[in-house]
Amino acid sequence: MPTRLLLLLCLTAHVFAREPPEVDCLVVHRKYVHCSWNKQGTPEVNYTFYSRFQPDKFSECSKYLRENNINTGCEQPYQTGQRFRSFNTKLVHGNQIYQKELELKTKVKLNPPTNVTVQRGSDSNLWLNWSQDYVKCVESEVRYRVNNRKWENNHVSTAMQDYCVNLPSSSSIYELQVRSRLAIYCGESVFWSDWSQPVVWGSNNSTDAKTNKSTSEWTPVLYVVAAFILILLVMLLLHHERIRIIFIPVVPKPSSDLHNIEDWFQFPKGLKESFTYNEHPCLVREYCHVSQSDSEAGSVFMPGNESDLSTSCSSSTSTVSTEEEMVSV
């Protein structure tokens, strides 16, 4: 029985034994090394932390990070180039010692860019500018969105500290952010910095938008003034040049009977009277051959015929004269 109880206690102790804390370290902005050992939760005991870059000696942490009076991390000074060497850590609590070797070459996290500004340039494009240390070794990434839509990410070349958004719309709102990391030329890091504070440009807070807003307030007034000036100019032109506006009626579709011109056109009263003709009809006589005997007989005129000859037109007169000439012959 005692043997079974002892075995049970050993198995239970093995199951409930806590795993050693895992140490994780990161070079922050190439200024210091940040290490933590609270990924599995806050430790139950305070560990003493030692670290070194080979081949240096171990040294105890100079600045502990604490939660509820329990050590959970450490910040160690860093010198340029040390991240290319192996980094050794050691956690100690009584007789418990946990050691770990880390490679920090790719574990560098920069601080977010500072002095982030956005403005519209003289080329009508939107320019984002920022500041970041170690310019020659840093590459950046910009993201922006329009009117709170989906973010659009764009890579910026190394050593560049500006970004251009081509021909932005003044009626839209642009929100922009930037982040950085060490480029491949200086030992590329797998960690990007946090995103910078967003900067906003658009119709609500830009200088251009304010100008457009003030202009839009004056637009109705400008329209009224322009309309008044136009009407005044037309009145002056009509007065001085005596321009008459004549409204021409629509010409109706011609009817199939084109003989009556009055039905085709709608003439004004005065114009219609000018087309009225009151001339007397002319008598036209046909020419015919007569024999000599008939002509001699017909050469005797009756007294009653004189009135008829006097009322005939010139055409009939010329015809009769021709007949008399032929009779005389």
Rank of each mutant, 00 (worst) to 15 (best):
280 H>D: 09
178 V>I: 13
164 C>V: 15
180 S>Y: 01
308 D>S: 13
171 S>V: 12
324 E>M: 14
78 Y>K: 04
63 K>R: 13
30 R>L: 13
40 Q>P: 03
329 V>M: 10
248 I>R: 09
213 K>M: 04
5 L>R: 08
85 R>T: 04
201 W>L: 05
317 T>M: 05
267 F>P: 01
131 S>E: 14
227 A>V: 09
321 S>Y: 03
112 P>N: 01
166 N>M: 08
317 T>D: 01
254 P>Q: 13
200 V>H: 06
223 Y>C: 07
136 K>P: 02
222 L>Q: 11
76 Q>W: 14
206 S>D: 07
84 F>D: 08
151 W>Q: 04
262 E>W: 11
315 S>L: 12
289 H>D: 13
119 Q>S: 14
180 S>W: 00
221 V>G: 11
321 S>R: 14
100 K>S: 14
307 S>E: 15
172 S>F: 10
99 Q>M: 08
72 T>H: 03
221 V>L: 09
74 C>G: 08
1 M>C: 08
280 H>T: 10
40 Q>C: 03
126 L>W: 05
34 H>D: 15
117 T>W: 00
52 R>M: 09
261 I>G: 03
265 F>N: 03
227 A>W: 09
47 Y>L: 00
173 I>F: 05
240 H>W: 12
214 S>V: 00
296 E>L: 15
14 H>W: 06
214 S>Y: 00
263 D>Y: 02
70 I>R: 11
226 A>Y: 02
224 V>E: 00
260 N>T: 04
57 K>P: 00
206 S>Q: 09
173 I>Q: 14
301 F>M: 10
158 T>M: 01
20 P>W: 00
158 T>R: 13
117 T>M: 04
76 Q>K: 06
204 N>R: 11
275 F>I: 14
98 Y>V: 14
44 E>P: 03
4 R>T: 09
226 A>D: 02
62 S>V: 13
299 S>P: 01
68 N>G: 06
57 K>L: 11
19 E>N: 13
63 K>W: 02
12 T>C: 12
271 L>H: 07
234 V>N: 06
14 H>T: 10
258 L>G: 07
78 Y>F: 15
77 P>Y: 09
